[in-house]
């Protein structure tokens, strides 16, 4: 029996999304499944964005706090460190300090941090709220306006607050992350609602909600695979934005990245465990379709970069 390689091609294509101004990065744009360069085109590599935040990362575990210990008291220093010392291609600024349960910083505080960081670095910036529905609706429009023209990514718009956030992102010429909770239909619905406001679907990034390895990653994995198949095989235009995996935040709060080896000797070294957990969560979700990854630990990022290098060699 002769063997014919059962290669497959698709009608659909993921939109390429370009972010930044002075320095630009593009992700998405492929017409095939993740890393399937043997049967389709993947013009851009996945993009890894280093996560920093507006307030010192007190709730980050020691393993991931340590690399930033000299800079994390100041978001500007932190951003510069990522760009210069770590070679970050993009930076994600999470305005976690605006959360009412955190420092409850005001929109004005947030605007100042965003402006300072934007003035200090050239690489594209992703600006995320604190994931508090009302507060994000208050803060994100202000920071979107303050960063107008810088072609940032603003997020995350959710079903309960997308209107104000999407309107602001649109008016200020930014890209937008639309997040829904692990359901392909909800995700599609939200993208439709946002595009019905006049927001171009080519400027959207879908966040089907991330989960860490061991904490629901199989749900994120399958929702991502289904969204990607809808984009490629069914060529569904609202499912064609690239996808983001907000890896660091989900990984560095679970037990596996915090419990010491003394407490759980059968889990082995905490440092390797934490770094691996973040890297493996990231590569697994890339295999499901994520093109934009938000990550924390420099060693995890370099492991994932090596993996991407090998895939694109």
């Amino acid at each position: 029996m002769a063997f014919t390689p059962p290669k497959e091609s698709f009608r659909g294509r993921v939109y390429p999304v370009t972010i930044g101004t002075e320095v630009q990065e593009t992700f998405g744009g492929e017409n095939t499944l993740p890393f399937h360069r043997f049967e389709g085109e993947i013009p851009h590599r996945p993009l890894i964005s280093y996560e920093i935040q507006d307030v010192p990362p007190q709730d980050w575990p020691e393993v991931v706090r340590e690399p930033y210990s000299d800079v994390s008291d100041d978001p500007v220093k932190w951003a510069q460190f990522c760009q210069e010392s770590l070679g970050a291609k993009s930076i994600t600024l999470r305005l976690i300090g605006t959360h009412p349960d955190q420092k409850n910083l005001s929109a004005e505080d947030a605007v100042k941090v965003v402006t300072d960081v934007l003035n200090a670095v050239k690489v594209p910036l992703i600006i995320l709220g604190s994931n508090h529905i009302e507060k994000d609706a208050e803060v994100l429009p202000k920071v979107a306006e303050a960063s107008k023209g810088r072609n940032c990514v603003i997020g995350k718009a959710q079903e309960a607050n997308y209107k104000t956030i999407a309107a602001a992102a649109m008016a200020s010429g930014h890209k937008l992350i639309a997040m829904s909770e692990l359901d392909i239909n909800l995700s599609k619905q939200l993208n439709i609602l946002i595009t019905q406001m006049g927001f171009e679907k080519e400027r959207l990034i879908t966040d089907p909600m991330c989960s860490a390895l061991g904490y629901g990653i199989e749900y994120t994995y399958s929702v991502m695979e289904r969204i990607r198949l809808a984009a490629l095989a069914q060529a569904d235009p609202v499912m064609q934005p690239p996808m983001v995996a907000d890896v660091g935040m989900y990984v560095w709060k679970i037990k596996e990245t915090q419990a010491s080896e003394q407490d759980l000797p059968e889990w082995g070294s905490l440092r390797e465990r934490g770094i691996l957990w973040e890297a493996l969560t990231a590569t697994t979700l890339m295999l499901a379709g994520a093109e934009l990854l938000i990550m924390r630990h420099p060693d995890a990022v370099s492991l994932v970069n090596t993996f991407i290098d090998e895939m694109f060699a």
Partner: peptide
């Protein structure tokens, strides 16, 4: 077969095969 490596792979395998 470091312990941390096993833990991560066991977990991934369990997740993907549920």
């Amino acid at each position: 077969a470091e312990k941390w490596k096993n833990l991560a792979l066991f977990t991934l395998r369990q997740n993907i095969y549920t």
